[in-house]
C-alpha cells in the first residue's frame, strides 16, 4: 500500500495543555483511513493540522514531522495545501448562497475558469455526490432549503470540485438520519477510487462498513492500527474498556 501522508511525532499544544503528544500515523492512498477514539481525544485537531487550519488559531502550537506526497507539510503554500487536502465538517454548513455558488465557491477563489467550464465542474461535483438529479431543475435555489443530508452532500461536493488528493471527513454523518447516513457511507466507499479518504467516526458499525484501515487514537496517541476494524494485542485496560463500550 502506498503511503500518501506520514505523520511522525506530532505534538499539539494549546497553551500548557497537550492535545496531541507524539502521534505517529500513516495514511494510505486510495483507501478509507478511519480514525476512532473517545471524545476530546484530539481527532478533529489532528485533521486541522493536516490542512493547517491550525495556522489560523493563535493559541495552538504544532510540532512534528508531517510529509504529504513526500514533501514536508510546512513547505506547501497553505492555500495550495488546502486545495489538495479537502475537508468536510461535522455539521452540514452550507454558505448562505445558492446551491451553485456553494459548489463553485472554492474553484472561483482558486482558479480562473470560464462560465461553461464552471457549469460543467459544478455539475460533475454534484453528480459525484449523487445530488445532481435532486437539484438539477434549480441550481439557483438557496442552499438552506436543502435537507440536512442533502446539505452535507453539498458540502462534500463543494470540497470535491477542487479535485483534492485527500478528503478528510470529521464525523460527517453524526447529525444525520439513518437513511442519509447510509447514502453518505455508500458514497465514501465509492470515493476511494479517486481520492484518499480520512474519516473520523465514533460509530464502529460505520467503520466496519467503510474502513480499509483503522487507527485508534487515545489520549493524543495512536494506540492501535489495523487493517479492517479488529484490534488485537491491546494491553491498556482503559483502551480495552473504551473499545468494549464502542462495541455495544
Amino acid at each position: 500500500m502506498e503511503k500518501i501522508i506520514e505523520i511522525r511525532d506530532l505534538k499539539v499544544n494549546a497553551g500548557k495543555k497537550e492535545i496531541i503528544n507524539g502521534l505517529d500515523i500513516d495514511i494510505y492512498a486510495n483507501r478509507v483511513n478511519t480514525i476512532v477514539g473517545p471524545s476530546g481525544g484530539g481527532k478533529s485537531t489532528l485533521l486541522r493540522c493536516l490542512n493547517r487550519l491550525t495556522d489560523l488559531e493563535p493559541g495552538i502550537r504544532v510540532n512534528g514531522n508531517v510529509t504529504f506526497q513526500g514533501k514536508n507539510l510546512m513547505d506547501y503554500d497553505d492555500v495550495e495545501l488546502r486545495r489538495e487536502i479537502g475537508m468536510v465538517f461535522q455539521r452540514p454548513n452550507p454558505f448562505p448562497m445558492s446551491i451553485y455558488d456553494n459548489v463553485a465557491f472554492g474553484l472561483k477563489l482558486q482558479a480562473k475558469v470560464s462560465k461553461s467550464v464552471m457549469d460543467m465542474m459544478v455539475q460533475n461535483a454534484l453528480e459525484e455526490v449523487g445530488l445532481y438529479d435532486e437539484v438539477r431543475d434549480n441550481l439557483k435555489r438557496h442552499a438552506n432549503t436543502l435537507s440536512g443530508g442533502q446539505q452535507q452532500r453539498l458540502c462534500i461536493a463543494r470540497a470535491l470540485i477542487l479535485r483534492p488528493k485527500v478528503l478528510m471527513m470529521d464525523e460527517p454523518t453524526s447529525s444525520l438520519d439513518p437513511v442519509s447516513k447510509g447514502r453518505i457511507e455508500d458514497l465514501i466507499k465509492g470515493l476511494k477510487e479517486k481520492y484518499t479518504v480520512i474519516l473520523v467516526t465514533h460509530d464502529m458499525s460505520q467503520a466496519r462498513k467503510v474502513s480499509d484501515y483503522t487507527n485508534l487514537i487515545y489520549n493524543g496517541k495512536i494506540v492501535a492500527s489495523s487493517e479492517g476494524t479488529e484490534f488485537t494485542d491491546i494491553e491498556d485496560q482503559d483502551v480495552k474498556d473504551y473499545l468494549g463500550e464502542l462495541a455495544e
Binding site: 488546502r82 479537502g86 454558505f95 472554492g106 477563489l109
Partner: peptide
Amino acid sequence: IQSEQIMNAYALGADHVNVATRILLPQ
C-alpha cells in the same frame, strides 16, 4: 456567524479578504 462556516471557507482556500467579503459582510 457559525465559526465552522468561516473555517470551512478557509478550508476551501479562502484568504482573509475572501472571508470578510464573501462570508462575514453579506451575513
